[in-house]
Design a protein around this nucleic acid. Structure first.
Lengths: 335, 335
DNA sequence: CTGAAAGCGCTTACAG
DNA sequence: CTGAAAGCGCTTACAG
């Protein structure tokens, strides 16, 4: 409740001098500074964010636009939110959650009302309608996800294509020439979820290049059906011994399903996967996989936004985070 | 970028008249109102949140203080954040994420700086250090969780004690006189996580009252060890046939572990559980269980905070959400 | 190095 | 019903 005026009075200086030590934009003699700092401490003063925002026309907050896909694995979301918040705080920014169903409306509102200095968008799809208002207003924003057309908006994501290639290579290098590609529900690909599409496209291409025959197996949305389909899949002796998994629910269930049937990894099935870090930790998934790096992605997203805020006219940057392959011995040479 | 002055000029009225239609606190004649609304539309005007906050000393935002326990299941967190954000938006409020490791510091900062109108705290433990600064400042806040001592702060949570009693009753009513109580890691109880403690205390008490012998089985934090312990548990013929589960990782793994051993629910094991809604959905858990109601809890939390903001001196309210038992036929009479 | 003054974009009594 | 004026708590040129 104390204001800058109270602090100034307590310290026996003017309000602008207090402001100088607050912003750090002007040099203040050490004794004066100390008096002011003591007064701040004594009055338990903290600057009023709204007033500062009004004076500087910077809100020091970032809007994070979340939106839901039925078919998506949401636990990863919590991780991104926390990591973004932590990264933003490093720069003195806080995160405002924008969760309304109509993400486009939220984006428009933020741009018109300047309630945030910039936006970070999650759950991107190709042709995402949220991009247009951002692009045409030139509003500072960063995409987490890599749509085919970023409309000159900064973007960052894990390099899902590189990840797919690593996993394909790993299977091929071990001598496999057939593999089941366990996929997300078709709805996710149809929605244009960028990570799913990029992974799948790269996996197919690499498989062709390396002579791996890929049997595509999209899975249903409903978990109980996922389980059923996986069970059928591993029970069918005509199916390949190698499995390339890009589907979090399937990744979590597969070890159980295999174990149920008395099948061992890697003795009976060679498995590689790309799944969310959150899931991996929760279920101690121990297959060779590409790490999803939510922290790195979040940090780069915030960095890119900070750069944009300081240089509104810089040319757009798209950054792919190099994935790394975590070897866990889940791939064996085919018999 | 348009200001209230631009709108006033465009509409040919004064700024205060524009403000009147913006706030809705004064009657404006329909023709004037329409002129103003047209101008707002034309200029794509939206009120500057910071300026309004400064003038009204209301920020229209709520801080949500999240903190992490190693042993906790975080997917539920995303659900709460989304549900809180949606509920807050109904009242025109937005959610600011406060994730720093030192929750107490975050709370103090918010109280001193008035960056938010109120706080909602998640992941509460008994003796939570975040309560003291709130209580002594009389700052509007709501706890999601029910510590033994709420320090006269409004609080809401699922009635975990009632949930535990329902589950115990359900086993007893089916004729069971022994049950394994599959628990969270001991660390969680030791940290004082209020939901874990309340559930366990009530389960024990009800078991005594109804003559159910409860064999307590706390599980490790690490998922792979959880799986190992569960496997041992269900393989041991001396263990009870009935299982009362309060541990999300275990709830997710148990069906697989049982299936692995050729054990059926409810033929071989009767299972009841209280686990997060998020988990239930993700893994299609189909055991009789108490629903965790994150949406209801979030909505009441926001309601309580709104009430508090409008009546700062009202006496504190603690609200328990009545749980409901979802019957899924996972309990049979013992042979 | 420090201070007086203007201004950021709103709202809210208070006159008219 | 409408408008002029003051004020919310800051920051920032600009003087001194």
């Amino acid at each position: 409740m104390a204001t800058i005026g109270d602090v100034a009075r307590e310290a026996g200086v003017s309000r602008s001098t207090v402001s100088s030590v607050l912003t750090g934009r002007k040099l203040v003699t050490p004794p004066t500074r100390q008096k002011i700092e003591a007064a701040i401490e004594k009055l338990n003063f903290s600057v009023n964010a709204g007033a500062r925002a009004l004076a500087t026309s910077r809100t020091m907050s970032i809007g994070v636009v979340v939106r839901f896909h039925e078919a998506e694995f949401s636990p990863a979301l919590a991780t991104y939110l926390i990591d973004l918040s932590d990264a933003a705080r490093e720069y003195g920014y806080s995160i405002v959650l924008l969760t309304e169903a109509d993400g486009v409306a939220a984006v428009r509102r933020m741009i018109a009302g300047r309630q945030v200095d910039g936006l970070i968008l999650l759950s991107l799809v190709n042709g995402d309608p949220r991009l247009e208002p951002i692009a045409s207003a030139g509003f500072p924003a960063v995409l987490i996800g890599m749509p085919q057309d970023t409309m000159s908006i900064d973007a960052v994501d894990l390099d899902f294509a590189a990840g797919a290639r690593m996993l394909v290579d790993h299977l091929v290098d071990a001598g496999h020439d057939h593999a089941t590609f366990v996929q997300w529900p078709v709805e996710l690909y149809e929605s244009g979820a960028t990570y799913a599409v990029r992974f799948a496209d790269a996996a197919r291409q690499r498989a062709v290049d390396r002579g791996l025959h890929l049997v595509e197996q999209p899975l249903p949305v409903e978990p109980e059906l996922v389980r059923r389909d996986l069970a059928e899949l591993v029970s069918d002796p005509r199916k390949p011994r190698a499995m390339l998994v890009h589907n979090d629910t399937a990744a979590a269930m597969l070890p159980f399903v295999l174990h149920e049937r008395g099948l061992r990894i890697p003795g009976d099935r060679s498995v590689v996967s790309l799944h969310s870090a959150e899931l991996a930790q929760l279920f101690a998934l121990d297959v060779t996989s590409v790490a999803s790096e939510p922290l790195a992605v979040s940090q780069v997203a915030v960095e890119l936004l900070m750069r944009r805020l300081n240089a509104p006219d810089a040319s757009a940057e798209s950054r792919l985070i190099e994935p790394s392959l975590i070897l866990r011995g889940s791939v064996a040479r085919p018999a």
